[in-house]
Simulated scan of single mutants.
Amino acid sequence: MSLLSPSALAAFARQVAPLLGTHCRTQPDEEQEGAVRIVDDDGRALVLYQDASKPQRLFITVLLPRAAEVAGIVLKPVTVAVGSTPGHAATHIRRRLLPAHAAALAEFTAAPAPPSPQSDQGSGLRLGDVAAPTALEQHAARALTAVVPPFSPHRGGGWVIGERLNRRRPLVT
């Protein structure tokens, strides 16, 4: 079996996206030629691509924040057969990839962030990037942790400090 053409891969991604949620859309991946992203309204992104060494497999991975990658947190992609249905691919994403993504993000947020000389003005971050916490966010995190533990997808509760990417409105001020 040969590699899918870029248009065939994009068409497959367009079929998978609505199965993951009505808020999901597709776009070309800027970092990897021939890859396609599925992005939701919160800015989370999956990347679908093929590897020439395994042309019969379709690889699906999530984009982690750059700071998580720098910290050494990586996720192995899940694979499905090239001839799989969009429903089969969506099932593998929901069952295998999204729980691993949530665990990786929980590990990243639980680890202390190294200090970074970034301004609070916003530095034109790309999708998947996370800015270094501001002094106010660090102070709020210490105060909140004294009362309630941080959010963990495994516990199902806790606090979160961040910004919704689709509205640019802070969650905690």
Rank of each mutant, 00 (worst) to 15 (best):
A10S: 15
R57S: 09
A17L: 08
V47A: 13
E163M: 13
S119L: 12
A11E: 14
M1T: 12
A90L: 03
A104W: 06
L64I: 00
G83S: 12
A140Q: 06
T22R: 09
A89I: 11
A71D: 15
T109L: 09
A103V: 04
F108K: 08
C24D: 04
T134F: 05
E31S: 10
A103C: 01
F12E: 07
I38S: 03
E30P: 06
R169W: 01
I60V: 15
T26V: 14
L144M: 14
P112E: 14
P149V: 04
F59W: 14
A131L: 09
D129H: 13
D51N: 13
R37S: 14
F108G: 09
A103F: 01
E69F: 00
G83A: 12
I93G: 14
R96I: 12
Q27N: 02
L4A: 07
L48V: 04
P150K: 07
A52N: 08
D29E: 14
V16E: 13
P117S: 05
V80N: 02
T79Y: 06
L19Q: 15
H23S: 11
G21E: 12
V82Y: 00
S152P: 00
L127P: 02
R142P: 00
T91G: 15
I38F: 01
E31R: 11
D41F: 01
F151K: 05
A106Q: 08
L125F: 10
G158P: 02
V160P: 02
E31G: 10
P28R: 07
R142W: 02
L165N: 10
L3W: 08
I60C: 15
A135R: 02
P170C: 02
A52D: 13
R37A: 12
P150T: 10
A45C: 07
T79N: 09
A8E: 14
P99G: 06
C24R: 11
A132H: 08
A35S: 11
S116N: 04
P117D: 11
S116D: 10
S53Y: 12
E33Y: 04
A13C: 11
L125M: 04
V78A: 02
T91F: 15
H101C: 07
Q121L: 10
V16D: 13
V82A: 07
R168T: 09
P114Y: 02
G122N: 07
T134D: 06
L127S: 04
A89S: 15
G157R: 06
L127G: 05
A67P: 00
E69K: 03
P149K: 05
D129E: 15
A111N: 05
V16L: 11
R167C: 06
A67L: 06
P150E: 11
Q121E: 13
E30M: 00
S7N: 08
K54N: 02
H88Q: 10
T173N: 11
A90S: 08
R44W: 09
P149R: 10
G156T: 04
V70M: 06
V82S: 05
I161G: 08
V39I: 09
L4F: 12
A110R: 15
V130K: 02
L144I: 05
Q138C: 07
E30L: 00
R169Q: 12
L171K: 00
V160Q: 10
D51V: 13
P153M: 04
T85F: 02
P115Q: 10
T26M: 09
A17Y: 08
A140E: 02
V36P: 01
Q32H: 04
A71Y: 05
Q56Y: 12
E107S: 12
